[in-house]
Design a protein around this nucleic acid. Structure first.
Lengths: 104, 104
DNA sequence: TCAATAATTCGATTAATCTAGAATTATAGG
DNA sequence: CCTATAATTCTAGATTAATCGAATTATTGA
């Protein structure tokens, strides 16, 4: 993931609704959750949510699988790992700072 | 850092100019760099840069110290660590995923 | 085929952000 | 005191984002 891609993904996570959606999907696990379920859980108007989901899918934060009428949204853990990796590798190597690993 | 704070910081990093500034400051190290130096290095108009810097300072991504005429900008490693920690702790604990540590 | 359900797309409004030149403030040094 | 320098604030236009009701597109099941 390059500079532009990282910025784009961070920008998408930088919205409270979308961050909430992502967190919800991560809690939901690898099976993800259908749009309607997210909608009920977070109480966001359907059209607004749809807009946010499509933005998140556009940058690769989530994947969407259509199963008959319902669309299941799945968080892309890999994508987030890349993001985190970038922040650590590119942003934490100041003069007095190791690549950070034991920070948690 | 709470949900809102995380979103706000991610949003600030989610702009190519600001991400570039932050990366530049991290490379500059714990001493940081004066505004003019950032400006020359990244070739961003002064007023535009000033705007971005004030946004970054507002959410705590950087600190600004005034030394006579020049203002030195210093990246807040701690803040970024908190951000990364949040993403790992709150966003990577899906059913089939450990809290992730050996990802780098 | 029809009604119900799941979700998107459309369209319009409002708000926020980005951009950058011009004017301004603060400070150093001659 | 005056000039040069460093940076911000002001202002305004352009772009992009957020919101959400209404209309639309699948798809299921009676």
């Amino acid at each position: 993931m390059d500079h532009e891609g990282v910025a784009a993904s961070l920008a998408e996570l930088g919205n409270t609704h979308r961050l909430a959606v992502f967190r919800f999907l991560v809690k939901a696990g690898h099976r993800g959750a259908p749009v309607g379920e997210i909608q009920k859980a977070l109480d966001i108007p359907a059209s607004t949510l749809s807009h946010h989901l499509s933005r998140m899918a556009r940058v690769g934060l989530i994947k969407q699988e259509k199963h008959s009428r319902t669309i299941v949204c799945i968080p892309d853990y890999h994508h987030l790992q890349n993001l985190i990796g970038f922040l650590q590798a590119e942003c934490c190597i100041g003069e007095n700072m190791e690549p950070v690993a034991a920070s948690l």
